[in-house]
Amino acid sequence: MLKNIILKIKRRENSFYASLYKIANFLLNFNIPSISLVHLPLYYLDSFTKSTIRWFINVFWSVPLFRARCETVGRDLRLLNGIPYVIGNHLKIYIGDNVRIGRTTFGASKVFDSPVLKVGNNTYIGYGVTISVAKEVIIGDNCMIASCIIMDSDDHPISPEKRLLGMPVDKVDVKPVRIGNNVWIGNGSMVLKGVTIGDNSIIAAHSVVTKDVMENCVYAGNPAVLKKKDINKEEQI
């Protein structure tokens, strides 16, 4: 019954239903006028209240709980969007000083007993980053990691039979990932197994890194290729 009435209102079958449609449309799109003297202070009050609540949760809940989960954590850790989602109780996490972590996923496969994730000092790991660790992923100091995927294995075996059985990748197919110091990885990128990224290099947005990256270079594309060399020297000129 109610569904039929709603359909008649949407179709505006006659003048009565057309009137109900206009009323419903008005209510759905109604906005209270903004009065700066009233609503601007309320805006700042809302912002201050939310910031205070986030700070309280970060200091007294998220950081202590995440510290307990890690092997070591340096000074001044800040979790920007709550506790990272960690998959795998056997993943060993080492965090340096002054690290900022957004809403991220740290996952460990069941290939090795003690896979290791290390994050260096003053490094920022942004919102939406996923790091999959089968054996070892090392991120250096002063890095900026935008929303991307970093993985030291294919996560699943090539054989369809093994995938159907839920088996992990073979140990020989796992190749650690090492990201140097002062590296910037752009949004939407992928850093795949066995890759080493040299110090000071930049990975452009939406790149797929399948091979080693030299120091002081810009790489871009799928697969990522060298686009610019000696960027550190150019900046010093």
Rank of each mutant, 00 (worst) to 15 (best):
I6G: 11
I9Y: 14
S15M: 06
I23T: 12
A24N: 10
F26A: 02
P33L: 02
I35R: 00
L37I: 15
Y44V: 07
R54Q: 13
P64C: 03
P64R: 01
R67V: 07
R67A: 03
T72H: 08
V73I: 14
V73C: 11
G74C: 05
G74I: 04
G74Y: 03
L80P: 09
G82Y: 10
I83C: 11
V86C: 04
G88V: 14
H90C: 05
G96D: 07
R100K: 14
G102T: 06
G102E: 06
K110I: 08
F112H: 12
L117W: 04
V119D: 14
V119M: 01
T123Q: 04
Y124D: 08
V129F: 10
T130N: 15
I131T: 12
A134L: 00
G140N: 05
D141E: 14
N142S: 12
N142F: 01
C143H: 15
M144G: 15
S147C: 08
S147Y: 05
S147R: 14
I150P: 04
I150G: 04
M151G: 14
E161A: 06
K162N: 07
K162L: 13
G166Q: 02
D173R: 01
G180T: 13
G180F: 07
N181L: 05
V183A: 15
W184Q: 03
W184A: 06
G186N: 02
G186D: 13
G188V: 05
G194Y: 02
T196G: 03
I197A: 11
D199I: 15
S201Y: 08
S201P: 04
I203N: 09
A205V: 02
H206N: 15
S207L: 00
S207C: 02
T210L: 00
N216S: 15
A220S: 10
N222H: 08
P223D: 03
A224C: 10
L226T: 11
K227F: 13
K233I: 11
